[in-house]
């Protein structure tokens, strides 16, 4: 760069001039990305690779020296383990139902909020509060003050005597999770509603569309990327739900409300079976990856990643 200034008429062909400049520029551009990339690899990928290694071992943490290679034995055990299959089913049910219900409720609340009325700011503040409550605190509060069979508010309000956590453990856990995540969905959808162009809505009105028609044909399509984002982020967090189950039902009664994170936790930290819980972890990752590839594609389309990439 220093000598080039002095030699403007250099006979160097332009193509090589451009290429060498591009090569050094490419590394200069990558430099700011590398620390984050290396850090993420170290904190997430390396432990996962170790998990894969453990999954081929038989190793019980309380019996030192028990560690040895067993090939695919752990995987065979995982797929013949009926509790694992039940936990898998519970995880799917919990994720799908919670995301869907929270989104519907969030949409409803967002629509209620998307107009001007007295106290709108206060109502919004109230509605986001469950998202700001510590999930652990929320779970404990629901377990006691809401669901308790003797003193809980639910039985008092409905005048019934139901043992919610024993009879409907999964539903009870899901109620708490939905309550926690609805504000998140609501905020995202509200952002989408408010980003709508007023002119387009007015155009629909002028074209003779009624409220319902406008909502279905104009608002929903415009909201779709916000809904996708809400589903994706919600699913990422809800699929990993652990606090609610750990604190409300301990996966019980029996294994009725056990999901995969909780089951793997149990195998690892209560059963001390490193090999098997690792194998489960690997299976979960493999399944998540399949779902995630699909979801990522959705995300990339919704957020137009090519934007800003020349």
């Amino acid at each position: 760069m220093t000598t080039l200034v002095e030699a403007p008429q250099s006979a160097e062909p332009p193509s090589t001039r451009t290429r060498s400049r591009q090569r050094s520029a490419a590394w200069k551009r990558r430099a700011p990305l590398l620390p984050a990339l290396l850090f993420t690899i170290a904190v997430t990928q390396v432990p996962f690779l170790v998990t894969v290694f453990y999954s081929f071992q038989s190793w019980n943490m309380v019996r030192p020296g028990s560690q040895h290679f067993v090939g695919f034995d752990n995987y065979v055990d995982v797929f013949t383990d009926s509790v694992f299959l039940q936990a898998l089913g519970n995880t799917v049910t919990l994720t799908v139902v919670c995301v869907f219900v929270a989104m519907l409720l969030g949409l409803g609340l967002a629509l209620l909020l998307d107009r001007t009325f007295p106290g709108r700011g206060i109502v919004r503040t109230l509605l986001i509060t469950p998202f700001l409550i510590l999930p652990a605190a929320g779970a404990l509060l629901w377990k006691t003050t809401m669901f308790d069979p003797t003193y809980g508010l639910l039985n008092w309000a409905f005048g019934v005597e139901v043992e919610w956590l024993s009879n409907y453990p999964l539903a009870a856990v899901m109620t708490q999770i939905v309550w926690q995540w609805t504000p998140f969905m609501m905020l995202l959808i509200l952002a989408g509603l408010q980003a709508q162009s007023r002119e387009v809505l007015e155009a629909a009105q002028v074209d003779g569309a009624g409220r319902w028609r406008t909502f279905v044909s104009i608002t929903l399509p415009q909201l779709s990327r916000y809904l996708q984002l809400a589903v994706l982020l919600g699913a990422i967090y809800i699929v990993n739900s652990f606090d609610a189950i750990y604190l409300m039902t301990q996966g019980g009664p029996g294994t009725a409300s056990t999901n995969l994170p909780y089951y793997i936790y149990q195998r690892a930290f209560e059963g001390f079976d490193v090999g098997q819980s690792s194998a489960m972890g690997v299976v979960v990752v493999a399944m998540t990856l399949i779902v995630a590839t699909f979801a990522l594609r959705l995300m990339f389309r919704a957020f137009d990643v090519s934007r800003g990439v020349k």
């Binding site: 490419a26 551009r29 990305l33 390396v46 432990p47 170790v50 979960v284 995630a292």
Partner: peptide, 25 residues
């Protein structure tokens, strides 16, 4: 950088790794 979408995909995919998969190591 040229590999922007790959890098973004990588970052997001780590978010999708269940935390339980790494807790033991």
């Amino acid at each position: 950088v040229k590999q922007t979408s790959n890098a973004l995909g990588f970052f997001l995919s780590t978010k999708m790794l269940p935390i339980v998969a790494a807790i033991i190591p």
